[in-house]
């Protein structure tokens, strides 16, 4: 393997006649945390949908572990190790926490108990709330459930859309620690879409800046944190 878990070249995608993504080049290496940030409508979530197989690309290539996956169904991508904690959390709100997690292990039904214990270790709150309906959880707990459900399929590439959206700072800090701990213990790659730029750069190794469907900047997170244009535009520090 090239050491790259995900490699995207010249990717184009959109809805109807509207082109959202224009010539995206991006990669995620083994064990790396990569962040994508940018303004609203810049195509960040659309990009994750394309990688997860929920939206067909118009052109370009998407390679996962050196294999072209453009034609694979979402189910086949999950089987290969791609999991998405989607925007808006996309939980089964009428089902209990545990039922949501069990469904997360749909393709790993033989290891469901083991995976459940693993997820409960990361998110003890979910164990306490396992009989509660997902719709009755707080925003933070729903985000934990969304990430926990994605982990249930034993992914090699975990994608998280809008980690901090609508959550209190203390909850976001806790989630950020858990994300780092997941990477350390599982050794997986994580691709995070995040509007909160300081958070995105704090937890990631590298980052891409999206604007109007293209990548306008990229680099190591440390380097981007020091870059004047980033500090001025996204961190209001100058």
């Amino acid at each position: 393997m090239s050491g790259k878990v995900l490699e995207v070249s010249d990717l184009r995608a959109g809805y109807g006649d509207v082109e959202i993504l224009r010539s995206i080049h991006l990669h995620v290496s083994d064990g790396e945390i990569v962040a994508i940030f940018g303004s609203n409508g810049s195509g960040k979530s659309t990009f994750l949908k394309v990688v997860a197989g929920l939206l067909r690309p118009w052109g370009g290539s998407v390679r996962y572990m050196d294999e072209h996956i453009e034609e694979l169904s979402p189910e086949e991508r999950v089987r290969r190790g791609i999991a998405l904690a989607a925007e808006g959390r996309k939980l089964f709100l009428g089902m209990s926490v545990e039922e949501n997690l069990l469904l997360g292990s749909w393709i790993k039904r033989d290891k469901v108990r083991e995976n459940l214990e693993r997820v409960y270790e990361y998110f003890p709150q979910l164990r306490e709330k396992r009989k509660t309906l997902a719709g009755d959880l707080s925003g933070g707990q729903q985000q934990m459930l969304s990430i926990g459900r994605a982990l249930m399929s034993e992914p090699r590439l975990l994608m998280i859309d809008e980690l901090s959206l609508g959550l209190a700072p203390a909850v976001v800090d806790r989630l950020a620690q858990i994300i780092l701990s997941i990477r350390e213990k599982e050794g997986i790659s994580i691709l995070v879409v995040e509007q909160e730029v300081s958070l995105a750069l704090e937890i990631s190794d590298r980052a891409y800046v999206f604007d109007l469907g293209t990548i306008v900047d990229e680099g190591s997170s440390e380097e981007l944190l020091r870059r004047d244009s980033i500090r001025r535009t996204y961190l209001s520090l100058m």
């Binding site: 997860a52 169904s73 999950v78 089987r79 989607a86 939980l91 469904l103 749909w106 393709i107």
Partner: peptide, 12 residues
Amino acid sequence: EDEVAAESVGVN
């Protein structure tokens, strides 16, 4: 409950 979510966990 949610067809997109079902797809994203690997349900055909």
